[in-house]
């Protein structure tokens, strides 16, 4: 799988092959858009705008991709930067309950809305850390590299987020 990404990236970098880049976009668009939808509190229009910006930036800086991390990790780093750059947007107000999910393959809309509401009680750094850790399965050190933060800060973010979520879900320790 990773070799395939590298072949496509090589075609884009050397030949400016848009077709090859289109394949990369198609492959990763769901993950990037999904992450941004959660970060923007369910605002699909804003998430899609940000996601487009992510892929455009990725194209411009593709020559700098060093393959030390997976391509998806590199994309998440760009997504994080794009999201932070757009934090002052006034469009962070729509609810996921208004999100038209009819075209998407959704397993459990109630869980999605539940998670979305839970994420609202977290600050942006806690939100991103929690999503990358529990949804994308990144380790603390990998998250630290993506967010360009000290490892200790990432651990603190996740710990604080977990405390808040524990209260939110009313999760009683057994």
């Amino acid at each position: 799988m990773r070799f395939s990404d590298l072949s496509l990236i090589t075609l884009v970098v050397i030949n400016n092959d848009h077709k090859a880049y289109g394949k990369l976009v198609t492959k990763y668009q769901s993950e990037v858009r999904g992450l941004l939808i959660k970060l923007t509190n369910g605002n699909k229009a804003l998430a899609d705008d940000l996601a487009q910006e992510v892929f455009i930036r990725a194209y411009k800086y593709l020559k700098t991709y060093k393959a030390a991390a997976t391509f998806s990790t590199w994309l998440y780093r760009i997504a994080y930067n794009v999201f932070i750059d757009n934090l002052n947007s006034s469009r962070h107000s729509e609810s996921l309950e208004n999100y038209d999910h009819s075209d998407d393959n959704i397993k459990d809309i109630d869980t999605i809305i539940d998670i979305q509401n839970a994420l609202k009680i977290l600050n942006n750094n806690e939100k991103i850390s929690i999503l990358l850790h529990y949804e994308k399965d990144y380790s603390h050190s990998e998250i630290a590299k993506i967010m360009e933060m000290p490892l200790g800060t990432v651990k603190t973010n996740i710990l604080k987020a977990k405390e808040k979520l524990q209260k939110y879900f009313n999760y009683e320790q057994k």
Binding site: V25, Q29, S30, H101, D104, T111, Y134
Partner: peptide
Amino acid sequence: RRFQKSVCDIKNDGFTEKVL
């Protein structure tokens, strides 16, 4: 479990063409 369950597969719906 909760976060993994909340992952959805978002259809392309012309997104790639818009980016290109």
